[in-house]
Design a protein around this nucleic acid. Structure first.
Lengths: 164, 164
DNA sequence: ACTCAGCAATTGCTTGCTCAGTAATTGAGA
DNA sequence: TCTCAATTACTGAGCAAGCAATTGCTGAGT
C-alpha cells in the first residue's frame, strides 16, 4: 500500500468509473443509441430514408391538417434550424415533402407531405414498428414497459423544465 | 366521408403516427438524446472534453491495469474503428491519453490515460454525476429507477443477441 | 517453412449535424 | 407612423461520425 496523492487519485478514478450512476446511465445511452442505429439501418435498407426523416413524417401526421413550420419541426426533433433547413432540403429532393409559404407570415415555410411521402411513410412505419416491437416491447414485461414509459415522461418533463 | 384510397391512406398514416408504440419509443430516443446533449455541453463548458471522450476515460478506469486496445474501445462505445482512431487522435492531442504499442501483437495500439487525463477525468466525472443525478435519478422514484435499469439491461441483452 | 485468410489501425471521401453570421419579415412601443 | 428588437429561414465553415479501401501483422492449415 502506497499513500501518495497519485495512488489516491487512481483509486478515486476507479471508483468513479465503476459507480452505480455511471453504469446505469451508460446503459440508457447505449440502449437508445443502438436501438436508433438498428432502426436507421433497417429504414435505409428497406425504405431509403433515415430515422430522422421518419421522425419528420411522424410529426407531419400527428395532427392531420395542422400547419407545421420548420421551426416547430426543429423544436420537436431537437435540431437546430439550420440542421432542419438542410434536412427538409434532402426530403424535398427525395420527393417526400414540399415547402409551402405560410399565408399568415411570410418568414415561415410550412412543410407538407407529398403523396409519395405518404406511401413511403406507411412502409417505413411498418418497419419501425417491427423493430420497436422486437427490441423494445418484447424484451420487457408488460408491467416494466408501462413503468418505463412513465419514467421517461418524468425525465423529459425534468429536462424541459429549465433551459439549457 | 369519402372512401377513396387516398383517404384510407391518410387515415392509416394518422393512425401510425399516433400509435402507442411510436409515441413511447419517441420518448426514449428524445430523453436519451437530450440528456446526452445536456451532459455534453456541460462537459465542454466545464472540462473542455466531449461526452464521448468521457466515455473513453470511464472505460479506461473500469478495470485499472487492464490493457485496452482501440478495438475494445470501439466495441464498447459502439463506434467504428475509424471513428475510434480519430477520437483517440484528438484525445492524444489534448494530452488525455497516449498510444502504446502492444507488446504481444504489433497490430494493436493500446490506449493509456495520462496524469492529465486522470485529473480531467476526476473533474468530468463530478460534472457527469451531477447532471445524471439531477435529470435521471431525481425525477424517478427509487422503485422506478431500479425497474428502469433492469429493463434497460433486458433491452441491451436483446440487442446484443443477434447481429445487426 | 509458406501461404493466405483474417484482423487492427489508418486514411480519403462523404454525410449530417452545429455554430456563427445574414437577410427578410413581423409586431410592439414611442 | 416609424423604429427597432425579435424571429424565421438560409448560408458558409467546421467537426465528428460512417463507409470503403489500404497497410501491416498474425496464426492456422498444408
Amino acid at each position: 500500500m502506497n499513500a501518495t496523492p497519485q495512488h489516491h487519485d487512481e483509486h478515486e478514478a476507479a471508483r468513479a468509473a465503476n459507480s452505480r450512476l455511471v453504469r446505469d446511465f451508460g446503459l440508457l445511452i447505449k440502449s437508445a443509441t443502438r436501438l436508433e442505429q438498428r432502426i436507421d439501418s433497417a429504414l435505409r435498407r428497406e425504405c431509403g430514408i433515415s430515422h430522422t426523416m421518419l421522425e419528420v413524417l411522424i410529426r407531419l401526421w400527428r395532427q392531420p391538417g395542422e400547419e407545421v413550420s420548420q421551426r416547430q419541426l426543429a423544436d420537436d426533433l431537437t435540431l437546430t434550424s439550420s440542421g432542419t433547413t438542410r434536412l427538409i432540403d434532402r426530403m424535398e429532393d427525395a420527393g417526400l415533402v414540399r415547402r409551402v409559404p405560410s399565408p399568415g407570415d411570410r418568414r415561415v415555410a410550412l412543410v407538407e407531405p407529398t403523396a409519395e411521402g405518404r406511401t413511403t411513410f406507411l412502409r417505413a412505419a411498418a418497419v419501425h414498428a417491427q423493430v420497436v416491437e422486437e427490441y423494445f416491447v418484447k424484451p420487457l414485461a408488460a408491467d416494466d414497459y408501462a413503468r418505463m414509459t412513465s419514467a421517461l415522461s418524468e425525465i423529459t418533463r425534468a429536462l424541459r423544465g429549465d433551459a439549457g
